[in-house]
């Protein structure tokens, strides 16, 4: 019987075909997030689903790897701007830390005032992107605009 068939049968029985990955004196297996080497596509829209052009998106990482530290641009990655469809495309190679996509409205008037402050997306290993609340949101005087102008992204 082929391995794939055995895997399917095991799955149908409700069990995993993979062995235990963590050896007795070992650690849990991490997601290989530093080895993406792939393109990530995102789309910035407002709550009505309309695309927002001209939002600056950059790859960021925290100065230290704790939530109370700010996210800074990651060296070696140039920021990109969303196009008329609100879309952006960033190639991620090897990154040494947990990585965020950070979007900033560089021109609030032209951008429609969507961003009152910096927003962040956590990039998952499978390439999907989910929005993250900025830890410092609420400190900006335009923070109240956020509830009316949430961003969404799609791969």
């Amino acid at each position: 019987m082929k391995r794939s068939v055995k895997n399917i049968l095991l799955s149908m029985l409700g069990f995993s075909a993979a062995p235990i990955l963590t050896a007795c004196y070992g650690m849990p297996e991490p997601e290989p997030d530093q080895y993406w080497n792939k393109d990530f596509k995102g789309k910035v829209t407002n709550t009505d689903g309309a695309p927002i052009e001209g939002v600056k998106v950059y790859v960021g990482t925290r100065e230290w790897h704790y939530p109370d530290y700010d996210i800074r641009p990651l060296e070696g990655y140039a920021p990109v701007m969303t196009d008329a469809k609100g879309e952006f495309n960033i190639h991620i190679g090897t990154v040494p830390h947990k990585t965020y996509f950070v979007a900033e409205d560089v021109d609030e008037a032209a951008g429609g005032g969507w961003f009152a402050t910096t927003e962040e997306w956590l990039v998952n290993f499978d390439g999907t992107i989910e929005m993250q609340e900025h830890p410092q949101s609420g400190t900006n005087e335009n923070e109240s605009n956020n509830s009316d102008n949430e961003g969404t992204t799609n791969e």
Binding site: T22, M27, P28, E29, P30, E31, D33, R62, H65, Y66, P67, H97, K98, T99
Partner: peptide, 9 residues
């Protein structure tokens, strides 16, 4: 626990 982006137990 506070560190982002690592697997642990």
């Amino acid at each position: 626990v506070a560190t982002e982006g690592i697997a642990y137990d």
